[in-house]
Simulated scan of single mutants.
Amino acid sequence: MGLRLSTVILPVDRWHEGGRSKWQWAEELGFQAAYTYDHLSWRSFRDGPWFGALPTLTAAAAATGRLRLGTLVTSPNFRHPVTLAKDLISLDDISNGRITLGIGAGGTGFDATALGQDPWTPRGRASRFGEFVLLLDRLLTEDSVSHEGDYYSAHEARNIPGCVQRPRLPFAVAATGPRGLRLAARHGQAWVTTGDPKLYETGTPEQSVQAIRGQVDRLADACAEIGRDVTELDKILLTGFTPDRGRPLESVDAFVDFAGRHQELGFTEIVIHWPIPDSDFAADQGVFEKIATEAAAQLR
């Protein structure tokens, strides 16, 4: 099976002023999937337009017909499993089973304090994430769920008729630490990484590949612990956060070389950012579109 190519479209455009057309053009270009970030605001975009992920995906589902859609990623920072499950079941229905939930533990950005709480410690985030995933799994597969946990509760939460995709929509679990990798191994249909953040500023592309190889190996170990074949999981690389930065999008050849090196590590899907001028994701739109068509054909 070849390497799939997908894109992530940040929710920075008004729907009727370019938002809709990007999602439709992503489908026309032949991307496997188009994702968006699930944040309340994010980094350098904090003081500019930024729209909600789930309404955006709902509109994208209505505007497209083949493209898979999803979040990269949703986190517990401002989500509760009970309400999220209801929205996801609705979104899976509207899209006729085209939704993937990218899900991670979250970080210390703006989302971490937007509801007035203090930022959670890394250990606290990991603990919440573990309970979040387990409860969400139940909510998406059972008609009625009651749960009293350390962080989340549900009382006879109804989710009828459930997902179009059975037994539920797929989870793409973002993780690099041992607890997260165990969650990916047990509950994920895919695993997501952005590489090793410690290498972003001063590392080399070669060091990044070695670090990601180590992540893949640890994922395999986590799968082996529960008797699961690691090849059952799709492996997704969200680009833009390795030392290569924007260089893979400078030409078709540069991207094919970058993608090929990661395909050798076992990755089944590469996700590239839709270009945004005057940002960290600035890129030549024409080259981006050639990558979507020409590079994707070479990698299949």
Score class of each variant (00 low, 15 high):
Thr176Ile: 14
Gln215Glu: 08
Gln215Ala: 03
Val192Lys: 05
Thr176Gly: 13
Leu183Asn: 07
Pro205Cys: 04
His187Tyr: 11
Gly214Asn: 10
Arg218Trp: 02
Gly180Gln: 08
Thr194Met: 05
Val216Thr: 10
Arg213Phe: 03
Thr193Asp: 00
Gly214Gln: 10
Glu206Gly: 02
Val209Met: 03
Leu181His: 08
Gly203Lys: 08
Gln215Arg: 03
Pro197Trp: 11
Gly203Glu: 12
Leu199Gly: 04
Val192Ala: 03
Gly180Trp: 03
Ala184Ser: 11
Gly188Thr: 10
Arg186Glu: 14
Ala185Ile: 14
Thr193Cys: 05
Gln189Glu: 14
Asp217Phe: 06
Val216Arg: 07
Arg213Met: 01
Ala220Phe: 09
Gly214Glu: 15
Glu206Cys: 02
His187Lys: 05
Asp217Gln: 05
Gly180Cys: 12
Arg182Gly: 09
Arg179Ser: 12
Val216Ala: 07
Val209Pro: 02
Val209Thr: 09
Leu199Asn: 08
Arg179Pro: 01
Gly195Trp: 01
Gln215Gly: 02
Gly203His: 04
Ala184Lys: 05
Ala184Ile: 12
Asp217Pro: 02
Gly188Tyr: 08
Leu183Ala: 06
Ala184Thr: 15
Lys198Glu: 09
Thr204Ser: 12
Gly177Phe: 14
Trp191His: 06
Thr176Ala: 15
Gly177Cys: 15
Leu181Ser: 08
Tyr200Glu: 11
Ala220Glu: 09
Leu219Gly: 11
Pro178Arg: 15
Ser208Tyr: 00
Arg182Asp: 12
Gly214Arg: 14
Val192Tyr: 03
Glu206Ile: 03
Glu201Gln: 15
Gln210Met: 06
Gln189Met: 13
Gly188Leu: 07
Val192Trp: 09
Arg213Lys: 15
Thr194Asp: 08
Ala211Trp: 00
Gly214Cys: 05
His187Glu: 11
Thr176Val: 15
Ala184Asp: 10
Gly214Leu: 00
Asp217Ala: 13
Gly195Ala: 09
Arg218Asn: 13
Leu199Ile: 13
Leu199Cys: 13
Leu199Thr: 11
Arg213Tyr: 01
Gly203Ile: 12
Gly214Ala: 10
Asp217Trp: 04
Thr194Val: 06
Thr194Lys: 02
Gln215Thr: 09
Thr204Lys: 12
Ala211Asp: 04
Pro178Trp: 09
Pro178Leu: 12
Leu199Lys: 10
Tyr200Cys: 03
Thr204Leu: 04
Ala190Asn: 07
Lys198Leu: 12
Leu181Gln: 13
Gln210Asp: 08
Leu181Lys: 07
Arg186Lys: 14
Gln189Phe: 04
Thr193Ile: 01
Thr202Gln: 14
Leu183Arg: 13
Pro205Met: 11
Thr202Lys: 13
